[in-house]
Write a protein that binds this DNA or RNA. Structure first.
Length: 281
DNA sequence: CATCAACCCTGAGAGC
DNA sequence: TGCTCTCAGGGTTGAT
């Protein structure tokens, strides 16, 4: 389930060709294939083809959990949701034939440089967009948690301006861009904030601590190349650092109390009932 | 504005 | 062994 660190890791390897991979910078599109129509949010397949063939990739980055390809005209944007992934591979296999796509490959973009970019997505929740304004598309996204322009003062003000349970608020992408279930649970634990606390009940020092906890888990996640949980995302090692996520019934590493699991905003939520107290509500 | 439920999907794991 | 059932999970949408 890619969150900010996983998306950052994938975007980085597409851009820099990390771990033996190939950088896509400068590549030119020669064809597009979409095998599951609903993976393409916009435009139509015909228009996508028409607008993208011949375009060149100028940059590859991330905004929230979106992977953004800046082309010499338009932007190609991916959201991996639960099970999506992007991989780059040679178009031609060892048998000198064009490699067939796998059963979970939903779209493929080939380049004049002899490689292709494959969007695979087992659960079909991921989406692809080709847009002429990435700013308009992202206009509802909240601030980047790692961006220094988000000061503790501003963060505290934003928390104060709402009256919501803290966990669903942190996962609300229009409030803050990039946190998902795993890193939210971890950050709340690190900051000793109960997931059901009301956002406007946090005093400034708590908000400051929470923001720094969020940054700490995200930075550590990026350094670990993300979290490999279940069969969905592979390659990262942050799962070895998890303090509460999927540790229900195991001991808190700070106080030994058993980690509890509750449902908050329809999401499985893991916390230590002793370290993360609810009292001010 | 906040909360909740349904929906989109599939593989995995449990129960039988 | 193999079937059926339930569940997770991000984000959108619609109801309360």
């Amino acid at each position: 389930m890619p969150e900010l660190p996983e998306v950052e890791t994938i975007a980085r390897s597409l851009r820099e060709g990390a771990q033996g991979g190939v950088s896509l910078l400068g590549c030119h599109f020669t064809s597009v294939q979409v095998s599951w129509e609903r993976s393409l949010a916009t435009p139509s397949i015909g228009e996508l083809e028409h607008r993208i063939i011949g375009r060149c990739i100028v940059d590859i980055g991330r905004r929230g959990k979106f992977i953004v390809f800046s082309l010499d005209r338009d932007w190609l944007v991916f959201h991996l949701r639960m099970s999506g992934d992007l991989r780059v591979e040679p178009l031609i296999g060892d048998d000198h034939l064009i490699k067939p796509l796998g059963p979970y490959d939903r779209a493929s973009f080939t380049f004049s440089e002899g490689v292709r970019l494959v969007f695979e997505d087992t659960r079909k929740f991921g989406r692809i967009w080709l847009v002429d304004s990435v700013d308009r598309m992202m206009s509802n996204l909240g601030p980047e948690p790692l961006d220094p322009v988000l000061t503790p003062e501003i963060f505290h003000q934003r928390l104060k301006s709402r009256h919501r349970q803290i966990k669903p608020l942190l996962m609300d992408q229009s409030f803050l861009a990039g946190l998902g279930n795993i890193y939210t649970d971890e950050a709340l634990y690190l900051a000793r904030v109960h997931p059901l606390r009301r956002s406007d009940s946090l005093e400034f020092p708590e908000a400051e601590l929470l923001l720094s906890a969020i940054r700490q888990v995200l930075r550590q996640g990026i350094k670990s190349n993300g979290t490999s949980i279940d069969w969905v995302y592979k390659g990262g090692s942050f799962q070895n650092t998890l303090q509460v996520y999927q540790r229900t019934g195991e001991s808190c590493r700070r106080c030994g109390t058993l980690i509890e699991r509750i449902v908050v905003g329809q999401r499985g939520t893991h916390f230590c009932p002793v370290c993360q107290v609810l009292d001010p509500q």
